[in-house]
Amino acid sequence: MAATNPDEVVAAFVKHYYSTFDSNRSGIGQLYREYSMMTFEGQKFKGLQNIVNMFNSLPFPVCHHDIATVDCQPYGPPGGVLAFVTGTLNVPGQEHPLKFSEMFNLIPIQDTFYVLNAIVRSNKA
Rank of each mutant, 00 (worst) to 15 (best):
97 P>W: 06
54 M>I: 00
90 N>F: 02
66 D>W: 03
37 M>N: 04
77 P>R: 00
13 F>R: 01
32 Y>C: 13
119 I>K: 00
7 D>R: 07
5 N>R: 01
70 V>E: 03
16 H>L: 11
48 L>G: 01
30 Q>H: 07
105 N>W: 06
94 Q>H: 06
41 E>P: 06
1 M>L: 12
43 Q>R: 12
20 T>C: 15
57 S>P: 09
13 F>D: 03
89 L>C: 15
123 N>Y: 00
49 Q>F: 04
85 V>D: 07
55 F>Y: 13
113 F>L: 00
108 P>C: 05
125 A>N: 12
98 L>K: 11
52 V>A: 02
42 G>L: 10
113 F>Y: 15
97 P>D: 05
28 I>A: 15
68 A>V: 15
110 Q>Y: 04
107 I>Q: 07
27 G>K: 03
16 H>C: 03
44 K>H: 05
32 Y>W: 10
20 T>L: 15
81 V>L: 05
78 P>L: 01
103 M>H: 07
100 F>N: 08
113 F>P: 09
28 I>G: 14
85 V>A: 04
45 F>N: 01
24 N>I: 09
37 M>D: 04
35 Y>W: 02
80 G>M: 01
102 E>K: 14
3 A>E: 10
114 Y>Q: 02
86 T>P: 14
22 D>P: 15
88 T>R: 12
48 L>A: 00
42 G>C: 11
45 F>D: 02
90 N>E: 07
28 I>K: 08
105 N>D: 10
77 P>T: 07
29 G>P: 14
123 N>L: 14
17 Y>D: 04
110 Q>L: 11
64 H>P: 07
84 F>T: 13
79 G>Q: 01
111 D>E: 13
108 P>H: 00
56 N>R: 02
73 Q>K: 12
72 C>I: 04
80 G>I: 03
44 K>N: 09
8 E>C: 04
24 N>S: 15
10 V>F: 02
5 N>L: 04
95 E>M: 12
33 R>P: 07
60 F>T: 06
121 R>I: 02
104 F>G: 11
68 A>F: 12
76 G>F: 05
80 G>A: 03
104 F>C: 09
84 F>V: 14
37 M>Q: 14
12 A>H: 05
90 N>D: 04
55 F>M: 12
12 A>N: 11
101 S>L: 03
104 F>K: 06
38 M>S: 13
92 P>G: 05
83 A>C: 14
72 C>L: 06
35 Y>G: 00
88 T>C: 12
45 F>E: 00
7 D>L: 03
33 R>G: 08
8 E>W: 00
5 N>H: 02
124 K>Q: 09
15 K>N: 10
1 M>I: 08
7 D>E: 11
73 Q>P: 02
34 E>K: 08
81 V>I: 10
101 S>M: 11
46 K>D: 05
94 Q>P: 02
44 K>E: 13
14 V>P: 10
117 N>R: 09
66 D>G: 12
37 M>L: 11
61 P>I: 02
52 V>I: 15
83 A>T: 06
105 N>V: 15
96 H>M: 12
49 Q>A: 12
24 N>L: 14
